[in-house]
């Protein structure tokens, strides 16, 4: 019973979100300037890849009832490490990139060790590593060193197209499918969900909670490393400030996508819809004559409003039911438990 209800709620949430996305697209196609061109669609996709990758792995973390505030800083650290490995250690960029992925995973493992080994709250651990990772990136480069003039073959990853589609979009699609399968079709996904639903219950059910959690955070670190690579390839420069604020953008997309911050409920396709809804909104606003000079501020502001409206809309039926006197089994005030 308790499993079925949230599942249908998620579907409803995603259907609403899909509707929002369709409305956005229709509206901007009608009112916006050159919104639907192939080039612009490619732009939207290209510019959402980093946030999208981070959101893809933030989703399982939040599904377990955790959170990872360090991914944006880790992106910066990985970008700097990649630059160091390529320019100063003289590694070919392919090797440097692979090593960077490993280092990202290692950093994710560091988060995981503190969270699972010492049973510390993820919010606090990753708040600490949020400062630490960014700080290390600044310490390594003294804040000032920037890595640039990467080879064309590398930049192709971030600026080229394969079959008309931005290169990094292919990477993203493959990974989105992989994460979707992982979350929705494997025991891993089911155990993440179970842990988010009730960590104690999962432990009593014989799941190795520590190992499953570790995997989620290592995956987050790995993906932050990959996002650092695509970011650097797109922007052409790696510096310690790369990815500032991306963690909040990723969390916003995941939550907008219907994943419950308390864990246990959510879907990868919802997260993808969340990423798309925000990206389309921000792009579209820069194409309306009325808003093109305020697009940056308005997209932030409207994302905030959208977040509240989407969540309040989802909570409303339950709220009305509670008002009518039907007692809910859930506690009256949700808490940030787990987080």
């Amino acid at each position: 019973m308790s499993f079925r209800f949230p599942k249908s709620a998620v579907l409803r949430h995603e259907a609403i979100l899909l509707l929002v996305l369709v409305l956005e697209v229709v509206f901007f196609r009608v009112a916006g300037r050159n919104f639907g061109t192939v080039d612009n669609v490619a732009n939207i996709v290209r510019h959402s890849v980093e946030i999208g990758l981070l959101a893809l792995v933030m989703m399982p973390v939040i599904l377990t009832g955790g959170i990872d505030l360090s991914v944006g800083s880790l992106l910066g650290l990985c970008a700097v490490l990649f630059g160091k490995l390529w320019r100063d250690a003289g590694l070919p960029w392919e090797v440097a990139a692979l090593t960077t992925l490993g280092l990202g995973a290692l950093a994710g493992g560091f988060n995981a060790a503190l969270i699972t080994g010492l049973r510390l709250p993820p919010l606090i651990v990753t708040l600490g590593t949020y400062s630490l990772f960014r700080g290390l990136a600044e310490a390594i480069t003294h804040g000032t060193d920037a890595f640039t003039r990467f080879p064309e073959t590398f930049l192709f990853l971030g600026t080229g197209r394969i079959a008309g589609v931005p290169t990094q979009a292919w990477i993203f699609v493959v990974l989105a499918i992989a994460v979707w399968l992982l979350v929705h079709r494997t025991t891993f996904g089911r155990s993440w969900r179970a842990i988010g639903f009730s960590p104690e219950g999962a432990r009593y059910a014989g799941l190795s909670v520590g190992r499953r959690l570790t995997f989620a955070y290592v995956l987050a670190g790995l993906m932050a490393g990959l996002a650092a690579i695509t970011y650097t390839a797109r922007f052409g420069t790696a510096k310690a400030d790369a990815g500032t604020g991306y963690e909040l953008a990723a969390i916003t997309a995941v939550v907008l996508g219907g994943t419950s911050i308390f864990g246990g409920v959510g879907s990868v396709h919802g997260t993808l819809l969340g990423v798309a809804a925000i990206a389309v909104l921000s792009n579209g606003l820069s194409r309306l004559p009325a808003t093109m000079s305020n697009a940056a501020e308005l997209s932030g502001l409207l994302t905030g409003v959208l977040l509240i409206v989407a969540l309040a809309g989802g909570a409303l039926p339950g709220w009305i039911a509670a008002r009518r006197g039907r007692r809910n089994a859930t506690p009256s005030v949700p808490a940030t438990s787990g987080v």
Binding site: R33, N43, R46, H47, F235, N283, S286, R287, A296, G300
Partner: peptide, 26 residues
């Protein structure tokens, strides 16, 4: 006609994003 837009956060990559949007905006 004048458009005035830029990043709100210190994210230099966002400048590129906006410029690429302007290219397709025409």
């Amino acid at each position: 006609e004048l458009i005035f837009d830029g990043p709100v956060n210190p994210d230099p990559a966002k400048q590129n994003e906006i410029i690429e949007n302007w290219i397709t905006l025409g």
